[in-house]
Design a protein around this nucleic acid. Structure first.
Lengths: 148, 148
DNA sequence: CCGTATCCATTCCGATACTG
DNA sequence: CAGTATCGGAATGGATACGG
């Protein structure tokens, strides 16, 4: 979407985040990166994305500090893309999208991939915003405090 | 992005979610809806979005079951847009984007709006995926189990 | 194998005008 | 005020060809 269009969008972290990852390709690339994917060709094959678009998105993600280029693990001449700390911090966003999709977008018999704990192989419970006391908060339990 | 392009994307809840809310305008509308915004004109003014685009996004969000049209609160002839249960369940996604933006996209002195608990007015702690034992999980502590 | 460059079609989007 | 209609420009995306 157009960059920095609206006057007060710079003050809303949601809007600012969406300027960086507010398109589907970027988030799918990040999703795959969480899945261990690191190479241009892997993204290309798995996503079915056009080469120029992939190159563009990778460049933007690197510029945004979400991915970084590192030397190839196999010592080859190419470079690979790895999540930075900032990129890894997008984990809750991906999990949120995943769990929403799981809950609402599949029919009863329809199968889908599942996010599980590595330790026991069991699905994660739904991630929820918590208050300071550790109890789950609904949207109605919160409000956005605007700055002057 | 193009709808349902890739072969196995239907099996990934992240991809399927992004088909519904994978563009910035939709998520900004949902963000505003969480903020209590309900009317066409309010969205129009606040987002600075073009009229046709807003109409299109509202229509899609209604079709997706994320918003529903309800009679105006003031008894006027127009209708308003309210989050459905499914729409409210996007709360963690919005919170995830917000907290990531807060953590990474603002300079030290730069101010931004804050999500706070209604009860005490204090900011929410970072939302994190938890394991079944209630302890936070990093991305590396999880894996995506694909279906056969 | 990793990208870049180019071409073309499609979509997105903003501005404006218009209707109920 | 809520939405539709249309127009033109810009960005997106796919396909292909090319170069390191």
């Amino acid at each position: 979407m157009a960059r920095q269009k609206h006057r007060q969008d710079g003050q809303c972290p949601v809007a600012r985040s969406l300027e960086q990852v507010g398109d589907a390709w970027s988030l799918l690339i990040v999703r795959n990166a969480f899945d261990g994917m690191r190479r241009y060709g892997e993204f290309l094959d798995d996503l079915g994305i056009a080469r120029n678009i992939l190159a563009d998105r990778l460049r933007r993600l690197v510029e945004a500090g979400i991915l970084e280029q590192v030397a190839a693990a196999d010592g080859g001449s190419h470079s690979e893309y790895a999540l930075t700390r900032r990129g890894k911090d997008l984990f809750p966003v991906i999990v949120g999208l995943r769990q929403w999709g799981e809950a609402h977008l599949y029919g009863k018999g329809e199968r889908h991939s599942k996010l599980v704990a590595r330790a026991d192989g069991k699905p994660l419970p739904p991630m929820r915003p918590l208050g300071r006391d550790g109890r789950p908060l609904e949207a109605d339990d919160t409000l956005v405090k605007r700055i002057a």
